[in-house]
Amino acid sequence: MSNGSLYTNIQNGIATVEFYHEASNSFPSELLNRLTKAFNELSENEDVRVIVLKSEKEKAFCAGASFNELIAIDNLEDGKQFFMGFANVINAMRTCSKIIIGRVQGKAVGGGVGLAAACDYCFASEAASIKLSELSIGIGPFVIEPAVERKIGVAAFTELTLDATSWQTAYWAKDKGLYAKVFETISEMDKEVDFFAEKLSNYSLEAIASLKKVLWKETENWDNLLEERAQISGKLVLSAETKKALQKFKK
């Protein structure tokens, strides 16, 4: 359980992918690898027509990548591989032939915002505030930037990135395009997620797969782009300034 858990349940053509980690649903590398594998397998599974991505419990949706792993990085290759975790997940979501519905019940930080942005359609509760705090610890949201900017635009991404210590509300995220709908309660959100997923599951798989390619047009270079971004982050995390900021944050 130190590496968290990931469960996939398939019923009536709807695959529910649910992840959990005791540290606010953050992702150690192993869990990110499992999530990447899950999306790749579901993309090829003919019994699956739509995917719902969610996390366990009612608090945080996702606190991003594992802080303990981040602070332990001591060489460039390990740094790059650490940040490739979310790069691989985003690319797996991007190339997945099925529509991915995000169910965001709580706060999302860093890579958690990236996950929401890589979903094709997101439902959220009022508690689903977002923050990109990377700049405050000496790195930046380089890997997730293409996915987030694709959803909310350059101006909103700039605001979110530079104001690295402030939370933006779920309604702010909806206004910018990250969330499609925001609900007062989790139960209200879940009803709509179930209804929407069931509706999509009755649509043509061929039409959905073709639409997915159209929705993600001009992202064909992301395999290389996100790897380059992981290299940048992997280098920055080794700097003395970043190491100092990480130790301060840990305390």
Score class of each variant (00 low, 15 high):
112 G>K: 00
120 D>K: 12
134 E>C: 10
122 C>I: 07
119 C>L: 01
133 S>F: 14
95 T>N: 13
116 A>F: 09
168 Q>G: 00
115 L>G: 15
153 G>R: 12
101 I>L: 15
106 G>H: 04
106 G>E: 05
124 A>Q: 10
154 V>D: 10
98 K>Q: 04
154 V>F: 02
155 A>L: 08
155 A>E: 14
132 L>M: 13
129 S>L: 06
114 G>I: 02
143 V>S: 11
160 L>N: 02
156 A>I: 10
117 A>I: 02
95 T>F: 00
123 F>S: 02
110 G>I: 03
149 E>T: 14
97 S>T: 15
135 L>I: 14
125 S>A: 11
148 V>H: 09
144 I>Y: 13
99 I>Y: 01
130 I>T: 05
105 Q>W: 13
115 L>F: 07
160 L>K: 03
134 E>L: 10
97 S>E: 10
113 V>F: 01
99 I>D: 00
167 W>P: 06
127 A>V: 07
138 G>N: 02
130 I>D: 01
135 L>E: 13
142 F>R: 12
106 G>Q: 05
98 K>N: 04
136 S>K: 07
136 S>C: 10
111 G>Y: 02
138 G>E: 02
141 P>K: 13
140 G>V: 09
152 I>T: 02
106 G>C: 08
131 K>H: 04
102 G>S: 11
101 I>F: 08
108 A>G: 09
164 A>S: 14
157 F>M: 15
155 A>W: 00
157 F>S: 13
125 S>L: 09
134 E>M: 08
135 L>R: 15
155 A>M: 08
123 F>C: 02
146 P>G: 10
140 G>N: 15
165 T>R: 07
123 F>P: 00
99 I>C: 04
119 C>N: 09
165 T>C: 05
97 S>A: 10
103 R>H: 14
119 C>V: 06
112 G>N: 03
96 C>S: 07
121 Y>F: 15
97 S>K: 15
167 W>Q: 14
106 G>V: 12
157 F>C: 09
129 S>G: 12
134 E>R: 09
145 E>R: 15
138 G>R: 06
128 A>H: 12
135 L>H: 11
130 I>L: 06
119 C>Q: 03
158 T>G: 11
166 S>A: 04
127 A>D: 15
108 A>Y: 02
97 S>D: 13
126 E>S: 13
114 G>S: 06
127 A>G: 09
105 Q>P: 03
142 F>H: 15
167 W>I: 08
116 A>Y: 03
131 K>F: 05
156 A>Q: 12
151 K>R: 13
161 T>F: 02
109 V>S: 10
98 K>R: 14
96 C>A: 07
124 A>T: 08
124 A>R: 06
111 G>F: 01
138 G>S: 03
99 I>Q: 05
150 R>I: 11
104 V>A: 09
164 A>K: 10
101 I>G: 07
131 K>W: 04
117 A>S: 06
165 T>A: 11
162 L>G: 07
140 G>P: 09
129 S>R: 11
131 K>I: 12
110 G>N: 13
106 G>Y: 11
153 G>K: 12
104 V>F: 15
152 I>P: 01
136 S>G: 15
130 I>Q: 00
101 I>S: 10
157 F>H: 06
158 T>A: 11
139 I>Y: 04
101 I>Y: 05
